[in-house]
Amino acid sequence: MFFDHFYYWITVILFVIGLYTVMSRSNLIKKMIGLSLFQISVFLFYITMGKIEGGTAPIIIDQPDVVYSNPLPHVLILTAIVVGVATTALGLALVVRIKEAFDTIDEEEILQMEETK
């Protein structure tokens, strides 16, 4: 049962690890790592769904009974990867600015400073 759908299991495991890291870590960089992992699990999910059993690369050749894999999910996920990179870059840029302003990247310390201000 596990090996029948191992790709879905990988997706789910990465998904949960990512989400857990985002919620449990107070270091902002580690949060960003968790967030990337979380997004990547979804990329894998999209990539696996394009595969058709026995399918080959979707390049048209003149043979009638060739099965092609579906290229569309890959194209879609390219867009999502770009979005993911942009999110990570923006998040890390914000962490740099936070480090400059608060002199720490630990969420709990920042929360304390915000409350005392």
Binding site: K31, Q39, V42, T87, L90, G91, R97, I98, A101, F102
Partner: peptide, 26 residues
């Protein structure tokens, strides 16, 4: 300066929301 932490918090929560939508669409 709290605008920075507010934006970061929104980035984390907003990305999780958007990724959930991506899974649903998938």
């Amino acid at each position: 300066r709290r605008a920075l932490t507010a934006a970061f918090q929104y980035l984390i929560v907003g990305t999780i929301g958007a990724t959930f939508i991506l899974i649903g669409v998938g």
